[in-house]
Design a protein around this nucleic acid. Structure first.
Lengths: 219, 219
DNA sequence: GGTGGGGTCAACCGAATGGTTGACCCGGAG
DNA sequence: CTCCGGGTCAACCATTCGGTTGACCCCACC
């Protein structure tokens, strides 16, 4: 049986070391290379391709402090010729992350607190071209299918972002050159789509669903 | 020179494996035991004590999915007789977290994305009874000293966090078993300290200054 | 034994927000 | 062409929020 060669992508050296130790403890798995962000991952893939080295699975973290984030890295990788399956291994099971990753072409989604054997199985499944979802993630996806995603208009998202900066309705109105009445109209629509009934809850909901970046979340 | 014996406390098997691999790669450091949460950590310390085993440093994650969280675990450990120094190793550099950890008796605060050598040095420093702060954390503290610290009370921070989840004054009042009037009083104090004049701006300001984590940023 | 800070609460008022209805314009889909 | 959705605006009203004043309790500190 061929050995499965894995590319680790995570910005934490600690986690990379952990994955390396954990995976190499299993028979038939080796770590081809490591990368700290999406850019480095793509370069590593290119480098290994030139060397004629095989990469059977990319193990990717979604949250990365600097550099290309996991979702865009995933989609970039999937746009290569004969791309390796990308298995997401992340800390959070929050909503939009998962959808974004799946849309980007991820073939699996595991959580970091999973026991080693589960991660092992997921890597095997991914290498075999199958899909591997953590139970919690699977449940979340099912939930999301039943609950249709609210699609906000660009204008609504714009107002939502201004909202999150702490501006009042009047201030928002001045900022985008519309009347306060219009701002309120938009907000009502936004509340309806997000299933909330006040501005702070809207910010919380929108941030949670990654519709906007949280207040103060710069960079 | 005596070998430094470390107790790892982290709910992620991956991270524990990583720390183990990373630390044991250095001379003079060994991993005495591992624990997945605060409860287990205390039990491990007790068990090792009975066995006559030494623990020179506790390496503790703050965020733990289930079981006792890192801050209370830290204070519990520091209440033991001849307690080992507790070195916090976590993902976030939020103010509230850091302050709480320091108050609980942590002797260091490192971030998980730190390079191995930095973590190594921090463990050595902690074992020697010194304080070790990640550069980013140290910078944050310095910044806090120069910048007239808004110095919110724990209660105010608590309300601020609830505020950020989108709760109304009444809902917050119910949640913490106080009257709506009291909530308003606290909010007025918070607005004053943050230099804002409404709740959304307070959330934005508090998030920006890392007094709280942004809405939807659960971990 | 004050003094002060933190936490609690009530009553009050003006301002802002939430929510509704109805209306107009415009551009693209059918 | 008609219909519909997005965007704009006005008027209205109930509710909530923002802010003040004054008060009480408790506890740590001097």
């Amino acid at each position: 049986m061929k050995e499965i060669r894995v590319l680790l992508v995570d910005d934490h050296p600690v986690v990379r070391a952990g994955l390396r130790a954990m995976l190499t403890a299993f028979e038939g798995i080796s770590v081809a290379a490591e990368a700290a962000d999406g850019d480095a991952a793509l370069k590593e893939l290119e480098r290994l391709r030139i060397l004629g080295d095989r990469v059977d699975v990319v193990l990717m973290d979604l949250q990365m402090g600097a550099g290309m984030d996991g979702v865009t890295a995933t989609s970039r990788i999937r746009q290569l010729e004969g791309p390796p399956p990308v298995l997401i291994l992340t800390t959070y099971d929050t909503d939009a992350d998962i959808l974004a990753a799946v849309e980007a072409g991820a073939s699996g989604y595991m959580l970091k607190d999973a026991p080693p054997e589960q991660i092992h199985q997921a890597v095997l499944a991914a290498a075999a071209g199958q899909t591997a979802l953590a139970p919690r993630v699977a449940a979340l996806l099912m939930d999301r299918i039943s609950n249709p995603a609210p699609s906000l208009t660009p204008r609504e998202i714009q107002l939502l972002e201004l909202l999150a900066t702490g501006l009042s309705n009047r201030a928002i109105a001045k900022r985008v050159f519309i009347s306060e009445a219009t701002v309120k109209t938009h907000l009502v629509h936004i509340y309806g789509k997000l299933g909330v009934d006040n501005r702070t809850a809207a910010i919380a909901a929108a941030t949670q669903r990654r519709i906007i970046r949280g207040p103060g979340t710069q960079g």
